[in-house]
Design a protein around this nucleic acid. Structure first.
Length: 873
RNA sequence: GGGAGCAUAGCUCAGUUGGUUAGAGCACUUGCCUUACAAGCAAGGGGUCACAGGUUCGAGUCCUGUUGUUCCCACCA
């Protein structure tokens, strides 16, 4: 940076260069250092299919802020990056790709298909990490991991085997969620319910005895082919006589029992429910309770199977149409109603889920959930904001067994080998060659892979070397903060908590910082289908990563959604430009002088004031950072830089640098000192511009990112200096205000007469006040020599603006009276408050003192105003 | 059905254990190209803090209820 700097800040020229500089110097790298406390963040691994979206940008910006802050604070800060294989999402993409070539998984075969996926991963898997770099993320790339790398895969097998041996993983035939499009089972968390328009068909079943009928209502008539019972509520008087009788399923003419079960609600539908245990979770439960036959009628492509008789081979929705038609023609259909109901959809492809009975692997959840709940209850894991712990409890307390097997090829293959001789299931960390039971060597591995969230659940410790007892695990674990959106608490956060508790008997992280969604300017979710997504990379290219980061953090609080708009990014860029220009100004004034970037020994009051203010900001910002109030911290930095530092201190400095030769070196030092300090506060938020500027002034160390964070120093707090300067500012503001009100144009230079209170020292600031109020000269302690003046009563002085034009006396008198009136009212309020015994005795002292001060000030003001009015008369 | 969030200036949002006259950005009005910045500076207008009660010396903030709105969980076939 030099004097030839352009007027406008251009991030493009700077950001890439600086990131390289950081990386080449190894500033992101962390290694075990027992002299320091560790601070660790495990990056939520983005999918290898992904491109960076605003959600990632927000998530990673927050993490980067935290890790940069802690690094500067002296922690051994480690942020481990990585990517997720995202089994289902990636497999879907690769299938689409090969389909374009006329290929399919089947024709390619498992091995060849996986080759394609790995190739795909090599090709696209680095896109997102490249993009995260552009954001400025200071993660330790030398430790980058992938959920399917050797270490993570070993962790997965270890976890699986241990859990199997403890009986916490089992294989069983249960009802699961099946996606006919992805052709795999899904966990409950992977099903999204969406309200949709449907029909409610009322159908009558013939009773076996006599010629009566019983009427049921269903939204899925095609499952009728698999009905194995009708059920009524035991307390339903209407149907009491039917319990134990039999009915005949229409079209297939199967005899089924009529049973009682309290699951049936009397008031819904007809009060009679057809029970299809193979294709409905609730019916499955009922079936278990009553030992009902299970008849599967739909296959894994959602096509009616061999049990469906003449409907065999039809798609489930085609079959539905046919069946309804046939029911109608045979007189079984009574009525069709429109109904709104929730339909489960696949979270990846939005296909309607088919509940289906199927042999799958499960994690037994209840024994794992309890300790995981306790970790949060005991405060070992804290959610920020706290309300998300409720959501977590609610889910954990009601969690059902987790279906972990997927009928996919891309992922961790289930470490189970089946003996073809004796049927034994051999679960093992290593490939099994010989059956442990019968010694046969005819074995084959389970074809299925594991839920992608199974490996994600181990992420924070698998990336530190688990299951080995590594020094890393010892030093960096538990990690400190997990940063993520509320949308994956169930998928991921809760599963990391219970698996860490189970395997390491520790919490995986101490804090979970939850952020909301980034929405568009209208508050809509950004989505591909709406086409309203804003590409963070485009924003970076146009405005810089610093501006993007600022826009994402400012005005936002933990857990709340935010809107992203052009307005916001524009004002962020404006701020970067502001800092750039402040630095430019300082360079113009300090370059070539023998500058020292440190606190000066003999500061003037103005320096005492700005340093005292800076010191206060250091404290406030640090406090906010520790409390994860990033938006608050950033706002305070912004306000300080723009208002106090630029608009006041720099403005003061301009004038003083011209006049006060004695102090000029002090001023220069202070300009650089305060700017450097406040840049440090800002650095976690806007890493690039802060480093560029900071390094351009005298500094210790290679980069601001490895400098130490400013610390609050009580000795620097100077209330007297603050009061004095506040007084000066008040006078200047008041004069400018009056001038503006009276339309005294800027090129008119009136004379000011100032009578200051004892100790106000306003004469010291003559030049400053004169310049900043556009005045001709200031005469102290004398009344104006003309009659044409306006009066200002400030807390530390009385000021008269004397003009060479005639003042409208009436108007001025009127204004003074008005001001007197409002001052009197305020005074009255203060007086009343102090007369209130309850207030005086119950309110804390500082509040009362404040009122007393206000009262004193107003009393003085009223007197002064009254005097002025008298003079006018 | 259960739970949670939100409701503050025209718009987007802050407002941290209750503290007196509620803030910012953008937009708006007026005046300034004042040698860092017109992506700027100065001054200004604009809010019965959704509504109704309550607790308190004091409520945007705490409690109860109401309305509107968004979301999560459950899944009544």
């Amino acid at each position: 940076m030099n004097k030839e700097l352009p007027k406008v800040y251009d991030p493009e020229k700077i950001e890439e260069k600086i990131y390289k500089f950081w990386e080449e110097n190894g500033f992101f790298k962390s290694s075990i250092n027992h002299e320091r406390k560790s601070y660790t963040i495990a990056m939520p691994p983005p999918n290898i299919t992904g491109k960076l979206h605003m959600g990632h940008a927000l998530d990673n910006t927050i993490q980067d802020i935290l890790v940069r802050f802690k690094r500067m604070k002296g922690y051994e800060a480690l942020w481990i990056p990585g990517t997720d294989h995202a089994s289902i999402a990636t497999e879907v993409k690769v299938v689409q790709q090969i389909e374009k070539e006329g290929l399919s998984k089947k024709t390619l075969g498992r091995e060849k298909f996986l080759e394609r996926v790995w190739k795909w991963k090599e090709e696209y898997g680095n896109t997102i990490t490249r993009q995260i770099r552009k954001l400025g993320a200071s993660c330790d790339w030398s430790r980058q991991r992938f959920t399917m790398d050797k270490g993570c895969s070993r962790a997965v097998n270890e976890f699986f085997v241990r859990m199997y041996e403890k009986g916490l993983i089992y294989k069983g035939e249960r009802i699961i969620n099946w996606c006919p499009n992805c052709k795999t089972s899904l966990s409950d968390a992977e099903v999204e319910f969406k309200e949709s328009e449907g029909k409610f068909w009322r159908i009558r079943y013939r009773l076996c005895e006599g010629d009566g009928f019983v009427e049921i209502a269903t939204t899925r008539p095609e499952t009728l082919l698999g009905d194995t019972a009708l059920a009524v509520n035991p307390d339903d008087e209407r149907y009491k006589n039917l319990i134990g009788k039999k009915a005949i399923v229409p079209l297939v003419n199967r005899e089924i029992p009529i049973i009682e079960d309290s699951y049936v609600e009397k008031d819904f539908g007809t009060g009679v429910v057809k029970i299809t245990p193979a294709h409905d979770p609730n019916d499955f439960e009922v079936g278990m309770r009553h030992n009902l036959e299970i008849i599967k009628v739909i296959n894994d492509r959602a096509i009616m199977n061999e049990n469906a008789g003449k409907y065999r081979g039809l798609d489930r929705y085609k079959a539905r149409k046919e069946i309804v038609k046939d029911l109608e023609s045979e007189g079984y259909l009574i009525k069709v109603e429109d109904i709104k109901h929730n339909v489960g959809k696949c979270y990846r492809c939005s296909e309607d889920i088919e509940p289906m009975i199927s042999m799958q692997w499960f994690v037994k959840m209840p024994p794992l959930a309890q300790p995981a709940i306790k970790l949060v209850k005991d405060g070992k894991v804290k959610f920020i904001p706290d309300r998300f712990s409720k959501i977590y409890y609610n889910w954990m307390e009601n969690v059902k067994d987790w279906c972990i097997s997927r009928q996919l090829w891309w992922g961790h293959r289930i470490p189970a080998w089946y003996c073809e001789e004796c049927g034994e299931i051999n679960v093992s960390r290593e490939e099994v060659k010989v059956c442990s039971k019968c010694g046969s060597d005819k074995l084959h591995q389970d074809e299925d892979t594991l839920d992608t969230w199974f490996s994600a659940a181990l992420w924070p410790f698998s990336i530190l070397g688990w299951p080995d007892k590594t020094p890393e695990l010892d030093y960096y674990y538990p990690t400190d903060t997990l940063v993520t959106g509320y949308d994956i608490i169930f998928f991921w956060v809760s599963r990391m908590i219970f698996s860490s508790k189970e395997l390491l008997d520790k919490e995986p992280f101490k804090n979970v910082l939850i952020h909301g969604l980034v929405r568009d300017a209208q508050g809509r979710k950004m989505s591909k289908s709406l086409g309203n997504g804003i590409d963070p990379i485009e924003v970076i290219d146009k405005y810089g990563a610093d501006a993007l980061r600022f826009a994402l953090i400012t005005g936002n609080t933990p857990g709340n959604d935010m809107r992203f708009s052009d307005e916001k990014i524009l004002s962020s860029r404006g701020f970067a430009n502001k800092i750039w220009n402040a630095a430019r100004f300082i360079h113009m004034n300090v370059d070539g002088t023998n500058l020292e970037n440190k606190l000066c020994r003999d500061p003037d009051t103005i320096e005492k004031w700005i340093i005292s203010r800076y010191n206060t900001i250091v404290k406030k910002v640090s406090d906010d950072m520790e409390k994860f109030e990033l938006g608050g911290a950033l706002q305070k930095i912004y306000d300080f830089i723009w208002d106090e530092f630029c608009d006041w201190y720099i403005e003061f400095s301009k004038i003083r640098l011209q006049k006060e030769e004695d102090y000029s070196q002090t001023i220069r030092n202070t300009l650089v000192y305060v700017l450097s300090g406040v840049l440090k506060l800002l650095h976690p938020f806007m890493p690039y511009i802060t480093d560029e500027i900071w390094c351009s002034f005298p500094h210790d160390g290679k980069s601001i990112m490895v400098s130490s964070y400013p610390h609050y120093d009580e000795k620097l707090s100077d209330k007297a200096a603050e009061t004095e300067i506040l007084g000066v500012m008040e006078v200047i503001r008041a004069v400018r205000n009056r001038r503006s009100e009276m339309n005294i144009s800027a090129n008119k230079r009136p004379t000011l007469y100032i009578t200051s209170e004892a100790g106000a020292n306003l004469d010291k600031y003559e030049e400053i006040i004169k310049t900043l109020t556009f005045s001709n000269k200031i005469i102290f302690d004398r009344l104006p020599s003309t009659d044409d003046f306006v009066t200002i009563v400030a807390s530390c002085a009385k000021v008269y603006i004397a003009t060479d034009e005639l003042i409208d006396k009436k108007e001025e008198l009127c204004r003074l009276k008005k001001e007197l009136e409002s001052s009197k009212n305020s005074l009255e309020r203060s007086k009343q408050q102090l007369l209130n015994q309850d207030f005086v005795s119950k309110a804390p002292k500082n509040v009362v003192d404040k009122v007393i001060d206000t009262k004193k000030r107003l009393e003085k003001k009223v007197i002064e105003l009254q005097k002025s009015i008298d003079v006018f008369k």
